[in-house]
Design a protein around this nucleic acid. Structure first.
Length: 559
RNA sequence: AGGAAUGUAGUUUAAUUGGUAAAACACCAGAUUUUGAAUCUGGGGACUGAUAAAGCAAGUGUAGGUUUGAGUCCUACCAUUCCUGCCA
């Protein structure tokens, strides 16, 4: 797999790294970092970034560190730190070291003091509204703060008071003194520090009352760590000049981290915003961050997606600077391909109806053999129990069938998968006219594997023997949103949820083989799709999630 | 309107760095099958045309230009995305 991957043409960032290496930039070092903010769970978009950050290091013999961008205690929490670590490792990556932006708070503070002393930063006492107003617009320059040229000593003194907790939250900020008329809005005296003294930081506790902003903290953290290629998504492109400006304040040698941006991942029928996901979770529109409909790593995991499927999907879509939207079917293709050779085919009857073989001896049971996975010889065979009374899918019988219906209807033959050929002889209805039992006769000469079984039959249907079958709750998941691009709609995204994204079937019957299935085990239910045992599944209450359906080409029941 | 960036089949990416526009997914048809899945074979697909026959002075957002030769270089235009949090 790796050789095939290496043959593939390099993406544009890999090309840059290769060139940098050739030119001996940064002493031939390659160092990346994955910098999540611990304020939510990782999603498939992060997986793309993870594959990039760790992938570059792996491919070019460099290192990749995990760094938590924990500069905002208002939204961040340890809960997320552990989940993020787990998700990265589950995806199959291992960081070199773990760092936290908060590890650098002291250094960042000292540098800020230095910038004040150099006249490159000042304490502003205006409200956020005033500062926003003075910022101007992209087409009109901003105006300078009245505090912009206050004495250095005064800023120094106030910055200390800010950090001592003597100033109220929101009352003052530290701003870099750059250019209020820059065409780049980020240069209009960006805020470096704000006061947060009503929250404990999950690592530094109450030590700090001022916290650095992203633009200041991020690049400097890269610098402190020795990052060479700081890879992020396109929306940070306009931040790059500021990133460089701050680095300029620190760099004294040839070493410089360089920021590169690639297109973030968008997928049809879902949202890729942590804010929106949080909202879905908080308003209980989904069952949690790991709801199998969520595009989070934990959601995909619970849905039955594998790390290799996710990685192959990411590999398929590539990295460019064009912001498009990936067809959800591509991800579905990835998981089908991944699971195909790996998981056993089993019988599950989602909407059962009884099939009684009238000429089969009562109380007789026999053991039949069936292939575990026709796409993988090594998976071997297993035995299944057959008897007089079976469950079949309700839809596999029709009382008044059209010509092109090839399954059970009076007088017609079908093959029972891995068993016998049977002929339908009729059915029984209850007082409401609902079919409750279907009858058939079997041909004892047609047992699977024998000569007699070679007869051509139009259709094969699935079944489970009643006595040995086990009950299962089946959760049929579908796309979370009803429309392709919920974020481009004028409507509230919550009104665009797909009302059919989850159907729970309580009365399903599955074959005994699933008796010992454990959470996260995957199977293919013949004709239905790939299913995974849910986390909440118990030995006496089997719950299975549909990962993805088989491709559905059944619109034959037209006309 | 200012700045930054991006336009290649329906979608996402390739294209030996100036030299045959290709792949995957999607779509369509046929064969095959003890899964109406998978598999196999083929097809339309980048411009025009009606879905065709077919055409082309035709094809990589549009229009020009440079060149023996342009998806690739140059110019202009158009479209889309991002930028005015004390979020990251």
């Amino acid at each position: 797999m790796d050789t095939a991957e290496n043959k593939k043409s390099l993406n544009f960032i890999e090309s840059i790294v290769e060139k940098d290496l050739k030119e001996g930039k940064n002493d031939g070092r390659v160092q990346t970092r994955f910098p999540p903010e611990p304020n939510g769970y990782l999603h498939i978009g992060h997986a793309k970034a993870i594959c990039m950050d760790f992938g570059i290091a792996e491919r070019f013999g460099g290192i990749c560190n995990l760094r938590f961008d924990d500069t905002n205690p208002i939204t961040e929490d340890v809960e997320y730190v552990d989940a993020i670590k787990h998700d990265i490792q589950w995806l199959g990556f291992q960081w070199n070291s773990i760092y936290y932006a908060s590890d650098y708070f002291q250094q960042l503070f000292e540098l800020a003091v230095r910038l004040i002393k150099e006249g490159k930063a000042y304490v502003d006492e205006q409200s956020s509204e005033e500062i926003a107003k003075q910022k101007g617009t992209p087409t009109t320059p901003g105006i300078e703060s009245p505090y912009r040229n206050r004495p250095i000593e005064e800023s120094l003194h106030l910055f200390d008071k800010m950090n001592a907790g003597e100033i109220a939250e929101g009352a003052m900020v530290l701003r870099a003194k750059i250019d209020m008329s820059s065409s780049n809005m980020h240069f209009r005296d960006p805020i470096m520090y704000r006061i947060i003294n009503t929250r404990h930081h999950h690592r530094t506790g109450d030590k700090w009352k001022v916290y650095p902003m992203y633009d200041y903290a991020h690049g400097q953290s890269d610098f402190f760590e020795g990052v060479t290629h700081s890879i992020c998504t396109l929306e940070f492109e306009v931040h790059r000049p500021l990133y460089d400006w701050f680095i300029d304040q620190l760099a004294t040698t040839n070493y410089r981290p360089q920021q590169y941006e690639f297109n973030r991942l968008n997928i049809t029928y879902t949202v890729m915003s942590k804010r929106k996901m949080l909202q879905l979770v908080k308003e209980k529109l989904v069952a949690g961050w790991d709801d199998p409909r969520m595009p989070t790593i934990c959601g995909l995991r619970r849905r039955g997606y594998t790390p290799s499927a996710i990685r192959s999907f990411i590999n398929m879509i590539g990295y460019t600077k064009y912001e498009g939207t990936i067809d959800a079917s591509l991800m579905e293709h990835a998981i089908r391909e991944d699971l195909k050779p790996k998981v056993d085919r089993v019988c599950a009857i989602l909407d059962p109806i009884k099939l009684i073989i009238t000429n089969y001896p009562a109380n007789q049971l026999e053991l039949l053999s069936t292939q575990n996975n026709p796409d993988n010889e090594q998976a071997g065979e297993r035995t299944i129990q057959f008897g007089k009374e079976l469950y079949i899918e309700r839809s596999d019988y029709m009382e008044n069938a059209p010509k092109d219906y090839f399954r059970l209807t009076e007088g017609k033959e079908v093959r029972l998968k891995s068993a016998y050929i049977v002929t339908c002889t009729g059915s029984k209805k209850d007082e409401n006219g609902r079919v409750v039992e279907v009858y058939c006769t079997y041909d004892a000469e047609t047992k699977s594997g024998t000569e007699g079984s070679k007869r051509k039959v139009k259709s094969t249907i699935n079944w489970v023997e009643i006595g040995s079958s086990i009950d299962a709750e089946i959760r049929l998941y579908d796309r979370l949103f009803a429309i392709e691009d919920p974020s481009k709609s004028d409507q509230d995204f919550r009104d665009l949820l797909n009302p059919d994204s989850l159907h729970i079937l309580k009365g399903a019957k599955v074959e005994a083989y699933l008796q010992n299935a454990k959470p996260m085990d995957s199977f293919q239910f013949l004709k239905h799709g790939y299913f995974t045992v849910d986390l909440d599944s118990k030995p006496n209450h089997l719950i299975m999630n549909r990962t993805v359906s088989l491709k559905d080409n059944t619109p034959k029941e037209k006309k």
